[in-house]
C-alpha cells in the first residue's frame, strides 16, 4: 500500500503545483492562449509543461507542503 499512498500524494501534489503555477503565471498564460499557435490540442501539452516541475520536489517536501496546505485550509 505505501506505493499507492505515494502515488496519490504525488498526484495531489502535482495538482496543487499546477494550481499554484497557473495562478502565479496567469497573466502570461493568457497571452499564450491568445498566441497564433495555440490550438485546442495544445491544452494537454501546456498542462504537462506547467506540471512537469512537480517532480523536482522530494516526497518529504511534497508531504510537508500538502500537510501545511490542508492545515491552513481546514
Amino acid at each position: 500500500m505505501p506505493q499507492n499512498s505515494n502515488q496519490s500524494q504525488q498526484a495531489s501534489f502535482s495538482a496543487l503545483y499546477l494550481q499554484r503555477a497557473t495562478q502565479e503565471l496567469s497573466e502570461d498564460l493568457d497571452k499564450i492562449r491568445n498566441a497564433d499557435d495555440f490550438k485546442v490540442e495544445s491544452v494537454p501539452f501546456l498542462v504537462h509543461a506547467l506540471q512537469q516541475g512537480a517532480q523536482q520536489f522530494s516526497a518529504s517536501q511534497q508531504n510537508a507542503v500538502l500537510k501545511t496546505s490542508e492545515n491552513r485550509q481546514g
Binding site: 502570461d28 497571452k31 499564450i32 498566441a35 497564433d36 499557435d37 495555440f38 490550438k39 495544445s42 501539452f45 501546456l46 504537462h48 509543461a49 512537469q52 516541475g53 517532480q55
Partner: peptide, 18 residues
C-alpha cells in the same frame, strides 16, 4: 516568446534534462 511553441520546446528541454 510567449507562444505555445516556446512552451513546447521548454517542456521538451526540461524532460530531456530530467
Amino acid at each position: 516568446k510567449l507562444t505555445m511553441t516556446w512552451i513546447g520546446y521548454a517542456s521538451f528541454l526540461f524532460d530531456t534534462m530530467r
